[in-house]
């Protein structure tokens, strides 16, 4: 009888939590539109979409990791590496390479390789993911820096530049690419075995192992995929700036993690997903957009995001289940 009462209570709690992020997004849009109606102009929607595309691609990768209850801090390093490699492999202002789309493919593969290293070291050496990825963050950023020696390289490839400059139905190609990534992420998460195993590992890794789930392989795969996504984010960053330099990653980790947790994916794992992350990314970008419209200094954004992380995480953590938190 006691069990039943408990189950019902958690049911009610979860339902509210499930819808809260969407509600926040709608409220946020309403408030900003009321203060400044220019928010509702189509041009502003395009601006928001363009601002959201890179965080979305990155946050989808991070969502996979957080679903398992782990964390990946290497985003900024891999983004920098991705942007720098893009600028060196496609038609550019520093060397004679002109690999075009194949170059982009190589960049994504490289990101996957960094993710693979993350996963293998994390799983085989049994080191917590935040430590491994803290290390690879700096390794990847160091490689990006060393490759360029602190300078910036122009990107002249029409396809890469076209991701930002050419529009379809009013939105740049990059936005459609980000949405395609979202669809891919959703398919992996909801319709493939590895995707479902992310939830199983997040829900209880020891129990999942009892059912014969290959936990190590799933973890390595997830980190690899995430790395590839970050590198794609790096390509987009390079496209947006029109150049590759080692600083393009700055601030990306923070925004991605904020978006994931604000969207409702629990840090403890097993709850949430990429659609929630889309909502989270929109909350973060709409808020930033709104602050610009209302004339608030953009440099306060990091501070606001920090507070959002604390609020979102503390709302989603099931404190009864945990006594020891490190």
């Amino acid at each position: 009888m006691r069990a039943r009462a408990g189950a019902a209570a958690s049911l009610g709690r979860l339902r509210v939590i499930d819808w809260a992020p969407l509600l926040v997004l709608v409220l946020l849009c309403g408030i900003i539109a009321a203060i400044n109606p220019r928010f509702l102009l189509f041009g502003n929607f395009v601006r928001i979409a363009q601002a959201a595309m890179i965080p979305l691609v990155l946050a989808i990768g991070e969502t996979f990791i957080i679903l398992m209850g782990s964390i990946d801090l290497s985003i900024e390093g891999v983004v920098a590496l991705g942007a720098v490699l893009t600028s060196l492999l496609v038609k550019n202002g520093a060397n004679a390479h002109d690999l075009g789309v194949a170059g982009v493919g190589l960049v994504v593969l490289t990101g996957g390789l960094v993710g693979l290293v993350n996963g293998v070291v994390h799983v085989r050496l049994r080191i917590p993911s935040f430590m491994v990825t803290l290390g690879t963050w700096f390794i990847a950023a160091g490689i990006a820096n060393a490759a360029l020696g602190g300078i910036a390289v122009r990107i002249n490839d029409p396809i890469v530049r076209g991701l930002v400059l050419q529009r379809v139905l009013g939105f740049p190609w990059g936005v459609w690419l980000a949405l395609g990534t979202l669809a891919l992420g959703w398919f992996i998460q909801d319709h493939t075995r590895p995707g479902r195993y992310l939830y199983a590992l997040g829900g209880g890794e020891e129990l999942a192992a009892l059912s014969g789930i290959p936990a190590a392989r799933v973890r390595i795969l997830a980190f690899t995929l995430a790395g590839a996504f970050y590198a794609l984010g790096g390509v987009l960053s390079g496209a947006q700036l029109g150049l590759g330099n080692a600083q393009v990653g700055q601030g990306r980790l923070f925004t991605a993690i904020t978006a994931v947790v604000v969207g409702g994916t629990a840090l403890s794992g097993g709850e949430g997903g990429v659609l929630q992350t889309l909502v989270g990314v929109l909350i973060v970008t709409v808020l930033a957009n709104g602050m610009v419209l209302m004339g608030v200094s953009p440099s306060i954004q990091t501070a606001v995001q920090g507070l959002m992380i604390i609020v979102a995480v503390s709302l989603s953590i099931d404190r009864k289940r945990l006594r020891i938190v490190k």
Partner: peptide, 18 residues
């Protein structure tokens, strides 16, 4: 709030940097 320390301090770091 029982937020894991690496996230709590990452967030605080963001607030401080901002």
């Amino acid at each position: 709030l029982k937020i894991p320390s690496f996230v709590a301090t990452l967030a605080v770091g963001g607030v401080l940097a901002g």
